[in-house]
Design a protein around this nucleic acid. Structure first.
Lengths: 147, 147
DNA sequence: CGTTTTTATATCGTTTACGATGCAAAGATA
DNA sequence: TATCTTTGCATCGTAAACGATATAAAAACG
C-alpha cells in the first residue's frame, strides 16, 4: 500500500471537510425555516452579539475575506435582514445593522436550532467532554493557521 | 448575555467551518504547484487508492453528490488528469481513470504535501494522540450524520 | 499643503456545493 | 414483451469562498 500518508482515511483534513459539510447540512432545514443560509446565520450571530459592526469586523470575526462578506451582506440587505449605512466618521466603512426582522430571527433561531441540532446529533456517541476536547483541538488548529 | 446557546464561541460548527477553510488554505500553495484544487486532490486520492472508479463510487467516498463531482471531473478531464469513458456493461456509468499525468501527481504530492503540512502545523501544540482523538470525534460526527 | 501609502469596501472570474430537474439506460413488473 | 420505476449521470440556478484587481476615503509623510 503505497504512500500511506496520502491515504484518505488517514487525513484529518478530509474528516474536517466532510464533518463540516454534514453539520452544515444538518442545520439547513432549520435555517430554511428562517429563510437564511449557514454563512448568513454566522453573520447574524456576530450581529446578535453586537449590532452595528463594520464589514471588516464581521469578516475578522468569521475569518473570512471582505470579498466574501460583502456580497453576503448585499444579499441579506436585499432580503431585509440587515441595513448597510456608510460610517459618519469614516465614509469608507459600511455599518451593518440588524433590521427588526433580523432581530426577530434570534428568537426563532433559539426556538429551533438547539433543539433541532440536539435531535440530529442525539445518536452521536460523543459526550460533553468529547465536544470540549474537540473544541479545544479545533481551536489549536485555528490559532496555528489563522494569519 | 442572552441565548448563550447561540453564541458563536460555543459553537462546534463554526470551529469546524473555520478550521476546514484554514487547513484547505494551508494546502493551497502545495496544490497550486500540482495545478489542482483541494476537491480535485480528494478525487485523486480516491483514484490513487483504486483507479477506474465510477462517478458514483467517487461521490460516495467523498460524501458528495454527483452533481458536484461531475463538473469537477469534467474540469479534471479538460486538464488531462483523468479520462472518462462510458461503462461497457452499463452505459450509464462513467468510468474515471487516471492519465499518466494524474498518476505522476501522486509522487509529487508525496514529496510536497506531508512535508509542507508538517511545516505549516509545526507550531500547533497538538500531539499525535490529540490528532487521533480528533479523528475519532470527527468520525463519530460523520457517521452520525451521513445518510 | 500636496503627494504617497494604506485602509475599507466593492467588483470580477473561477471553482465548489447543492437543490431541482432532465434524460437515457437498466431493472422490475404486469 | 410492453410499461413502469429506478438508477447514473448531466444540466441549471444560486450562494459561497477566494485570488486579483479597482476605487474612494483616510492617514502618513515630506
Amino acid at each position: 500500500m503505497s504512500h500511506a500518508e496520502l491515504q484518505l482515511n488517514n487525513q484529518i483534513c478530509f474528516r474536517l471537510y466532510a464533518a463540516t459539510r454534514l453539520i452544515t447540512q444538518a442545520y439547513t432545514p432549520m435555517l430554511n425555516a428562517l429563510g437564511i443560509t449557514y454563512p448568513q446565520y454566522l453573520v447574524l450571530m456576530v450581529l446578535w452579539e453586537q449590532d452595528g459592526q463594520t464589514v471588516n469586523d464581521i469578516a475578522h470575526r468569521l475569518l473570512l475575506e471582505t470579498n466574501t462578506v460583502t456580497p453576503l451582506l448585499q444579499r441579506m440587505e436585499k432580503q431585509g435582514i440587515v441595513t448597510r449605512t456608510r460610517g459618519e466618521k469614516d465614509k469608507r466603512q459600511q455599518i451593518v445593522s440588524l433590521t427588526d426582522q433580523g432581530k426577530k430571527l434570534e428568537d426563532i433561531a433559539y426556538e429551533l436550532i438547539p433543539a433541532g441540532m440536539g435531535d440530529r446529533l442525539s445518536a452521536c456517541p460523543l459526550e460533553l467532554a468529547d465536544y470540549k476536547h474537540l473544541a479545544g483541538e479545533l481551536d489549536a488548529i485555528i490559532s496555528t493557521l489563522k494569519h
